[in-house]
Write a protein that binds this DNA or RNA. Sequence first.
DNA 1: ATGGGTGCAAACTGTTTGCAATCTG
DNA 2: CAGATTGCAAACAGTTTGCACCCAT
Lengths: 150, 150
Amino acid sequence: MPFLSDSALKDELNARGYRATPQRQKVLSIFMELTQGEHLSAEDLHNLLEEDGERISLSTVYRTLHLMVYMGLLRELELAEGHKHYELNRPLKDHHHIVCVHCNKTVEFAERSVAKIGEKTASSAGYHVLDCQLTLYGICANCTAQQQAR
Amino acid sequence: MPFLSDSALKDELNARGYRATPQRQKVLSIFMELTQGEHLSAEDLHNLLEEDGERISLSTVYRTLHLMVYMGLLRELELAEGHKHYELNRPLKDHHHIVCVHCNKTVEFAERSVAKIGEKTASSAGYHVLDCQLTLYGICANCTAQQQAR
DNA sequence: ATGGGTGCAAACTGTTTGCAATCTG
DNA sequence: CAGATTGCAAACAGTTTGCACCCAT
């Protein structure tokens, strides 16, 4: 599901009774241009679209993000920055985050065993797992160094 | 750190140049009365305090929560419900969450190996880990059953 | 007594919603 | 052409902040 042409997106939307609009296509194409691990807030996305000369309102950005999360095209991340971030929902969800609580710098890392542990635990609690996010909060090397400098 | 008497809290605060106020003591005592795994939003906490006949403003609740997270007494959770939740920051952080994306029901579970994996990964990226949260999103048994009933 | 803490109300941020106009299937 | 989708502006929810008063230290 990571790469979806405009026409594939249209099919996917139509199959579920939704319509393909230029806004939706443009939103998805922005996400497909990101490098692995990059993620955007609603406002980041809106800015990128405007820079590209697209005319799209913030409300539509939000509505589109919700729709695409609902359809499974995007993944919603809750990093502790007060607003949500979104990224393409790649089939292998073995990619997690470390956030620096000082500077908010975020690093992605891949780790297969976490998803397995999660899957096992959740299903024994009767849950059908949709997503598995391991988030580590800490202080990055840079900030640690700066603290010691004081 | 899970159980802190009023006077221990006072010492802890004074040592860092803060003052012990009735509001802060009451907030912490509310958290200490919770059963393991319970967590509160700022508003939940405010309501509980008012039920107990305490006079405390919402702003003070927020300020106190931030302070206690900063001091390491509380842990901030980002469950996908649009607002943050807080719980006592117990020394063993091997306790994670599964959230049902339909009904928001949250279940806690303990899993030791995740923290180990996280610690290892983060430190190799140069991060000093403060917290490690594994959050699983899925559909609970109840909601699955209801979906099939339709 | 001094400066940290509180309550209040007003400001803010990110997000959602109602509605008329517009576009897709 | 019907109904889904959009843009706009207004409404919202949760959280933060300025300021005068108050109370731990």
